[in-house]
Design a protein around this nucleic acid. Structure first.
Lengths: 218, 218
DNA sequence: TAGATTGTTAATCGATTAACAATC
DNA sequence: TAGATTGTTAATCGATTAACAATC
């Protein structure tokens, strides 16, 4: 990492996308790409691509371009995907269950260690091979097992309380699916997936669009 | 709507959040709020709040502030949440199932009409009272039933093909949960929920944080 | 009326794009 | 070497913040 200047959030949000496209290129057996070709593919300007990548270091080679494998690995490392993370899911509603069952993260080192619930009917069960434990023991469990990330899939009313316990117990990150804005200490990273906000933005765009033109009017 | 100038996407993304906070204020029985108080609550500057709201029209009153109920309704209408939307879910993996079971959208007029699957073992079943149909019939079904939104919960390999069929059949919006960037005609609105991108951004921030300080080092 | 607070214009800040010198 | 393409600085664009006149 060459520069030490603060990386803007806009850049960070683009990194996973760069990584996804590089993975596809890898799969196709492409081994080098110029910012110009990459631009056509990914839809950012060549200038932006060079600017973005350069904020982490000179990954390219003048007159040649970028090595696909190398760049993929660099970006993975920048994102911290060369590490492993122990996670706990809190709340086994439909979403919690889906998250617990979603196996794709194993590929990138995110491991679901356990699941916490309050409902006695579910405690003791196993979901996708992961044990469901009593929420009452969350603090001690997270402390003793060095959990890195807490995934909040509870109703919004209790989400802040859950976040507080997770932070107190020592998680370094919270992945929040409850539709509230949580307060966490600044040494804890927070990422929100406000799924209904996304649906509402979709609704906005659908109505905006219909003003502009009415193709295939029924 | 007073002005006709193009509303930036940054503003749109903030609208659902304004709406959520206004809902909380309503519940608490608050009936007016100034941009200054709202700022403290929601975390945007008072200036930004006034600027944002004013791009749609003058919803406030000088010397008084904003009427909570009125503003909530205005924002809901801007987002198109005063309308109803018929939706179909495509793909019944864990995520599709979670989405299909997620009942909260009924509150805002989003109705899941049916679910499409390719697996014969699941076709004909019912999930949360909604019938699972054969994916083969998606085009005719969507056309005949005036479906507004297609929700893509399939593996990424087939997501583009599904999007093509949905667009051809006449949906006005696509809510995409597959980890790919889809191509859709510009009269179709597209909203992505790239859930793993979000997890990767979380990982980045967790590692960045740890450099700055190492509180509670174990 | 006086005080409060919006609506709106102007100033600032940050992010994106363009340009080009460095260099493989 | 000549051509290509990066790395990086400068110019532009857009979004946020500050300021203040309008007005309830």
């Amino acid at each position: 990492m060459k520069k030490d200047a603060k990386i803007s959030n806009a850049v960070i949000k683009r990194l996973p996308r760069y990584r996804r496209y590089l993975r596809e290129l890898q799969k196709k057996g492409v081994d080098k790409i110029s910012s110009r070709e990459f631009s056509r593919l990914i839809g950012y300007t060549a200038s932006q691509i060079r600017q973005d990548l350069n904020s982490f270091g000179g990954f390219g080679q003048q007159g040649y371009g970028y090595n696909v494998d190398g760049l993929y690995n660099e970006i993975s490392a920048i994102l911290g995907l060369d590490k492993h993370y122990k996670m706990v899911v809190v709340g086994v509603g439909n979403l919690g269950r889906a998250i617990a069952n979603y196996t794709s993260y194993y590929k990138t080192g995110f491991i679901i260690d356990t699941i916490f619930e309050v409902s006695p009917a579910i405690i003791g069960n196993s979901i996708n091979g992961v044990e469901v434990r009593d929420y009452d023991h969350i603090v001690e469990y997270v402390e003793e097992n060095d959990i890195d990330i807490g995934i909040i899939c509870t109703p919004k009313e209790v989400a802040q309380e859950v976040a507080d316990k997770l932070c107190f117990a020592g998680v370094r990150g919270i992945w929040n699916f409850a539709p509230v804005d949580l307060e966490v200490p600044d040494y804890v990273a927070l990422e929100n997936v406000h799924i209904s906000d996304s649906l509402h933005a979709l609704a906005y765009h659908m109505n905006k669009q219909s003003k502009e033109q009415g193709k295939k009017d029924k």
